[in-house]
Simulated assay, not measured.
Amino acid sequence: MIFDTHAHVFVRGLPLAQHCRYVPDYDATPEDYIAHLDRFGIDMGILVQPSFLGTDNHYMLEALRRYPTRFRGVAVVEPGIAHAELDAMAESGVIGIRLNLIGTALPDLTLPAWQKLFGHIKALGWHVELHREARDLPDLIRPLLKAEVKIVVDHFGLPSQEYQQDDPGFQFLLKHAATHKIWLKLSGAYRNGNPATADKNVAPLIPLLLQEFGTSHLLWGSDWPHTRFENAFNYQKAFDLFKHQIPEEKIRQEILSIGARLLID
């Protein structure tokens, strides 16, 4: 199976999180997204709860229930969520939770509430997805490794443009690839600097990621519908950029299939 591991669905009028960095003024429906998947020959998409909807996952969950053979989901939850609610999400096709920490205070993941949550995440076989700049990833990843959960890092790890591959947080990722507990998404290159230079933003990172993570722990995500960057990117450009970054078809096909399969299983 071929996977797109990062996309969002939403419509106008849904309840919004208390503090939003950005709210789209258009709809991005499951049917819109499936049309892209079909056009590019992609079997399954992983829907990621967008930051502006907070912990109200109901629209994504409805999409999972409506299209169980096309979607899996990553929810955003509070650390004190009831285990029964997580179990119900699992029945609907949720496979992980996302910690969207851009612009927020860094949580202490060693606290009992988080550790209790991670215990159930591990039991469910889910992963914990991190969206945070590379400099802070070590403080987040260490307690997650201790909790023995699968970890997914968004958008190339978001190293600083000043240091790129030499960013200490990115180097931490490379060093800990050998744990085989961390997956990294080749997605949202335009979120790593100037969207006009998306390829240049991440080009130095890719050989190192292939060397240390291998194709089994790298994932591709379109980041559709490219929130905040809708005028600069679309699905075609995202897929073409991936083909340019990974020109060898065999390696590209492995990234599109093996890593996501391991993550879901």
Rank of each mutant, 00 (worst) to 15 (best):
E249Y: 12
P79R: 08
E248K: 14
P168S: 05
L262K: 11
D154S: 11
G214T: 01
R142S: 12
L205Q: 00
A203E: 10
R65G: 15
G41K: 11
N57V: 03
K116Y: 11
K122A: 13
I121M: 09
V153R: 00
L186I: 08
D56R: 07
H131C: 10
P225T: 06
Y26A: 12
I102K: 09
L47M: 11
H217M: 07
L99S: 05
L14D: 01
G125E: 05
L209R: 00
V23N: 04
A105T: 14
P50A: 07
L53I: 08
Y33L: 15
A147W: 06
I2H: 14
Q49E: 09
P79G: 09
G103I: 07
G193C: 07
P50K: 02
E85R: 15
I251T: 11
M1D: 10
F242I: 06
L111H: 12
G119E: 04
G125S: 08
P30Q: 06
R12I: 02
A178V: 15
Q245G: 07
W126D: 00
N231G: 13
V74R: 02
G45T: 12
R70M: 11
L174G: 03
D32H: 12
Q245A: 12
Y67S: 07
G169Q: 00
I182N: 00
T5W: 00
A134E: 01
K237V: 04
V23Y: 10
T197Q: 14
T215M: 02
D32R: 06
L106G: 06
K185G: 02
V76T: 11
N194F: 05
W220Q: 02
V76P: 00
A113R: 09
I81S: 03
T179Y: 07
S92A: 15
I102T: 14
D167M: 08
T55A: 12
D87L: 11
I95Q: 03
F52G: 01
D139Y: 10
N234E: 11
D167P: 06
D43Q: 12
A7C: 13
V128E: 01
Q245T: 06
H36F: 14
V202T: 00
F156S: 00
N234A: 09
Q115E: 12
I102W: 08
T104P: 10
A203V: 04
L140I: 08
V128K: 02
V11R: 08
N192A: 07
G169M: 02
H19Y: 13
I34F: 11
A105V: 10
L144G: 03
E248V: 13
Y33R: 02
S257N: 11
P207L: 05
L144A: 04
K243P: 02
P24A: 08
R252C: 01
D38G: 09
A196P: 01
L86T: 05
F233I: 02
W126L: 05
